[in-house]
């Protein structure tokens, strides 16, 4: 049983087992993705085959053209860009001063705000969307992108506050004290000392808010009515329903396109995301 050789064999066996397990995970994670992209590039003839293949034998961009013809994809992508972009910028602009105050000035109100961030995660959307729907209807903001931006701003605020608090904590108080000693006022300190140091965190929070809003479906489904106002995720569901085998191509093509912006941003903020999520959780 003992001896260096058997130990080494056991180690090697363990390693092999680990690689096999990792491979199984990779297959589970990757196979739907491969299938989606492969379907997007298949010709109608190939989609109709009874023995489907993993790799398109004759890759074509036909599905992408068909997808653009079938639904107003460009317009909905524009809507999504506008809504997600404005919601992210507004939410972060509102959250920066608040996050700063919540970190540097502990009081009952800032504690309550932190509590609310956590509690708001618990509530089912129905309880929020019905009153919001009625409220926005009163204000004639149903079926308007501005109304959706408003909802997304509020939707993004809790997490933005959470992430930004973590980044504010990382800014040394001594720097601010030094600025105060040098005679800088409060606003001056905020703008020229704290803000520059916060920039990487700001960018990460912006990107995360953008992705959240870009991916969002439920609020857009409830609040938007007319076809020309729909966002990307709602338009995608228009492809569903009576899908013949041939329509699968354009569906896959549109779905692939809709993922690109989120993937891009996620790739950029990969590292920051993890630290950001945990940063808010670290004790202050």
């Amino acid at each position: 049983m003992s001896g260096p050789t058997s130990l080494r064999t056991r180690r090697a066996a363990g390693r092999t087992g680990q690689y096999l397990a990792l491979l199984a995970y990779l297959v589970f994670l990757a196979f739907p993705l491969v299938w989606l992209v492969s379907t997007a590039f298949k010709s109608p003839q190939e989609l109709g085959r009874i023995d489907p293949t993993w790799i398109p034998q004759d890759p074509t961009l036909e599905n992408f053209r068909a997808a653009f013809d079938a639904q107003p994809l460009l317009r909905s992508a524009g809507n999504s860009l506008l809504v997600a972009g404005s919601a992210a910028v507004i939410a972060v602009a509102l959250a920066v001063p608040a996050a700063y105050a919540m970190v540097r000035k502990r009081s009952k109100i800032t504690t309550a705000a932190t509590g609310w961030i956590l509690v708001s995660q618990m509530f089912p959307f129905v309880l929020i969307i019905i009153p919001l729907f009625m409220l926005l209807k009163e204000a004639r903001m149903i079926d308007s992108l501005a109304g959706l931006v408003l909802v997304y701003v509020v939707w993004n605020l809790p997490f933005s506050l959470w992430m930004l608090q973590g980044y504010v904590k990382a800014v040394p108080v001594s720097l601010e004290e030094a600025a105060a000693v040098d005679g800088a006022g409060r606003l001056r300190t905020l703008v020229s000392v704290v803000l520059p140091l916060l920039t990487p965190g700001l960018v990460a929070t912006l990107m995360f808010s953008f992705v959240t809003a870009w991916n969002e479906f439920f609020f857009a489904l409830v609040l938007l009515k007319s076809p020309e106002n729909q966002t990307m995720s709602v338009i995608l569901t228009q492809f569903l329903g009576a899908e013949g085998v041939v329509d699968l191509g354009p569906l896959a093509a549109a779905a692939t396109l809709a993922t690109i912006p989120s993937l891009l941003f996620f790739a950029l903020l990969q590292r920051r995301l993890v630290s950001g999520m945990l940063a808010g959780a670290v004790k202050g």
């Binding site: 994670l29 196979f31 299938w35 995608l236 492809f239 569903l240 779905a255 993937l263």
Partner: peptide
């Protein structure tokens, strides 16, 4: 990297993708 991809995807796209995987006649 791969493990992060599902997180970035819109839920609607995840749903559509799995409909393609589960498709009765043309699913993988």
């Amino acid at each position: 990297t791969l493990a992060l991809v599902p997180w970035a995807m819109p839920e609607v796209v995840v749903g559509i993708m799995w409909r393609l995987v589960y498709h009765q006649d043309a699913g993988i």
